[in-house]
């Protein structure tokens, strides 16, 4: 098994001395590890990585949700410049590749004298991108409301805030449950970006590349991470479907 070593040259050493190098093929001549060996040596690291991934997912999604609500409010308000700004934000962050954004944050910002920790960069990338999609889903949820219902509420004498509280927000949220569930899973998948920067503790994806550069973890090392990701995704999906069934609005 002779995988050629391809070390990617670091683009530039930063003033702080941090280098960023991408990992490559496995070292020569290591023992192939089976599942029991893997678990004894790396079992606790897998658990740590799982918790890291979960934590990152929860933080990112919460941030994405809050930012998404703020952007939706901006996009809907009657102030044209703010509307355009909100739409512009959406177009940037739903179309930019995660890797490109992360590279900009980690590599390019220091040239503007903004140096953020690796974790912060990852968190920003994994929050801003889902936030754009969150706003899109909330808008779609709002668009399921028949405009006539807003008029009816107005004709009954409800003020703007009452209309938002009684009609718009409940219906928008209840109609977006499935989309937001998918977004939570997508956020978890986006957190794999954390594997591209040195992070301690590692996330599930970073751990697989870590293991495979020190030993021959084979398919097993990959499968453990994959199954952990997958199971989380399925559980989230089930919970989301159940919630949606309860709160779904019949039309």
């Amino acid at each position: 098994m002779n995988a050629a070593r391809q070390i990617f040259k670091p683009c530039r050493l930063f003033p702080t001395g941090r280098a960023f190098c991408f990992l490559s093929g496995p070292a020569k001549g290591d023992n192939h590890m089976d599942i029991s060996a893997l678990l004894t040596q790396y079992g606790d690291k897998y658990l740590q990585a799982l918790l890291t991934t979960w934590k990152l997912t929860v933080f990112s999604f919460s941030l994405a949700f809050l930012i998404g609500i703020a952007i939706t409010v901006i996009r809907v308000c009657p102030i044209r410049p703010l509307q355009l700004f909100g739409d512009f934000y959406i177009q940037i962050f739903r179309n930019i590749p995660g890797a490109a954004l992360l590279i900009l944050l980690v590599y390019a910002l220091p040239y503007l004298n903004i140096v953020l920790s690796y974790y912060t960069c990852v968190l920003i990338a994994t929050s801003l991108i889902p936030s754009a999609f969150c706003s899109e889903y909330l808008m779609a949820g709002m668009n399921t409301i028949a405009p006539g219902q807003i008029e009816a509420a107005r004709a009954l004498g409800m003020s703007f805030s009452k209309i938002m509280k009684n009609i718009v927000i409940p219906q928008a949220l209840r109609s977006s449950v499935l989309s937001l569930t998918n977004l939570l899973v997508a956020t978890m998948l986006t957190t794999a970006l954390a594997s591209q920067v040195p992070m301690n503790p590692m996330d599930l994806t970073g751990l697989v590349s870590h293991i495979n550069t020190r030993a021959v973890g084979g398919v097993t090392a990959f499968l453990i991470s994959a199954v952990l990701y997958c199971t989380t995704a399925v559980i989230i999906g089930q919970i989301g479907t159940r919630i949606d069934r309860k709160v779904r609005i019949l039309r």
């Binding site: 794999a192 970006l193 594997s195 084979g218 090392a221």
Partner: peptide, 24 residues
């Protein structure tokens, strides 16, 4: 289908980068 949807692309890429060569 659930497996494909539940695993990040990066992990699949690492599989093809690191694991597949292990099989020659």
């Amino acid at each position: 289908i659930e497996f494909s949807r539940g695993v990040p692309t990066l992990l699949f890429i690492y599989f093809f980068l690191l694991v597949v060569p292990q099989f020659g």
